Amino acid sequence: MTTPQDLMIIALDVAPDRPVGRGDLALALAGAELIDLLAAEAASLADDLIVPGHPPPLADPLLSEAASSLVREAPYESVGDWLWRRGRDLPATYLAALQSDGRLARQGRRGVPFRTTRMALADSPDRRRAADRWTAGEPVLTSLATAIGIAPEDPAATAPDDDTATTVLAAVNDALLELESVRQRRTIEDAAFDNIWRGN
């Protein structure tokens, strides 16, 4: 079980106050992958640059894929650039993995047309482990979930005691702020465009 898998399960399992945006989740999943890669010594940080390492084979195929996608030539890649590049389509990748393993299944009620069925998590050891980690308030998982609005910010929450994880979490928060500013700018531009059409 990995941090991005746990985060994906929690995003599906815990009803947030507001729906989690796909872009927000993508950035958080990429951050979770990087935190796990750093913990496995598949990479290290030099300031905010990701320097690839030479770890033993990783058991999780998606984490192995993430490790193989690290930029392996200097000047390497910044944490922020990794989040945007690696995060693209990452929620769909993790959803597909949960489905292929039988951990996510289409559920419906008798007499309800198929089109109204929804995807639901199966009861599995992975789901229970993610829930245990969530209930325990594990700092990295809680910080990532809070950043994308799954949980309200808790001033009393324990911060990660790992400097590299803290660096990645800060980069995730910066990327989320950037994404939100892009959304706001598009909303303003769309509203201005609509006003031009109404005025003609």
Score class of each variant (00 low, 15 high):
residue 53 G to M: 01
residue 59 A to D: 13
residue 59 A to F: 01
residue 59 A to C: 02
residue 59 A to M: 06
residue 60 D to G: 04
residue 61 P to Q: 06
residue 61 P to Y: 03
residue 64 S to T: 13
residue 64 S to R: 12
residue 65 E to F: 10
residue 68 S to A: 14
residue 68 S to R: 15
residue 69 S to R: 15
residue 69 S to C: 05
residue 70 L to S: 06
residue 70 L to T: 08
residue 71 V to E: 10
residue 73 E to D: 11
residue 75 P to G: 01
residue 75 P to R: 03
residue 77 E to W: 04
residue 78 S to H: 00
residue 80 G to T: 14
residue 81 D to S: 11
residue 82 W to F: 10
residue 83 L to G: 07
residue 85 R to I: 03
residue 86 R to M: 05
residue 86 R to P: 04
residue 87 G to M: 02
residue 88 R to D: 13
residue 89 D to N: 14
residue 89 D to V: 12
residue 90 L to W: 10
residue 90 L to N: 12
residue 90 L to M: 14
residue 90 L to F: 09
residue 92 A to I: 07
residue 92 A to K: 12
residue 94 Y to V: 00
residue 94 Y to Q: 04
residue 95 L to C: 06
residue 95 L to M: 13
residue 99 Q to V: 15
residue 100 S to A: 14
residue 100 S to Q: 15
residue 101 D to T: 15
residue 102 G to F: 07
residue 103 R to K: 11
residue 105 A to W: 06
residue 105 A to L: 13
residue 106 R to I: 07
residue 107 Q to N: 10
residue 107 Q to Y: 12
residue 108 G to V: 05
residue 111 G to W: 08
residue 112 V to C: 08
residue 112 V to P: 08
residue 113 P to I: 09
residue 113 P to T: 07
residue 114 F to T: 09
residue 114 F to C: 01
residue 114 F to D: 14
residue 115 R to N: 08
residue 117 T to S: 15
residue 118 R to S: 12
residue 118 R to M: 08
residue 119 M to L: 15
residue 119 M to T: 09
residue 119 M to I: 03
residue 119 M to D: 12
residue 119 M to Y: 11
residue 120 A to E: 13
residue 120 A to L: 11
residue 121 L to W: 01
residue 122 A to R: 13
residue 122 A to I: 07
residue 122 A to V: 14
residue 122 A to Y: 02
residue 123 D to V: 11
residue 123 D to H: 12
residue 126 D to V: 09
residue 127 R to M: 02
residue 127 R to D: 00
residue 128 R to Y: 07
residue 128 R to P: 05
residue 130 A to C: 02
residue 133 R to C: 08
residue 135 T to G: 05
residue 136 A to W: 00
residue 137 G to F: 06
residue 139 P to E: 00
residue 141 L to R: 03
residue 142 T to Y: 10
residue 143 S to H: 08
residue 145 A to Q: 01
residue 145 A to P: 06
residue 147 A to I: 01
residue 148 I to F: 02
residue 148 I to Y: 04
residue 151 A to R: 14
residue 153 E to R: 14
residue 153 E to S: 12
residue 156 A to C: 01
residue 158 T to L: 11
residue 160 P to T: 00
residue 160 P to Y: 00
residue 161 D to F: 00
residue 161 D to Q: 06
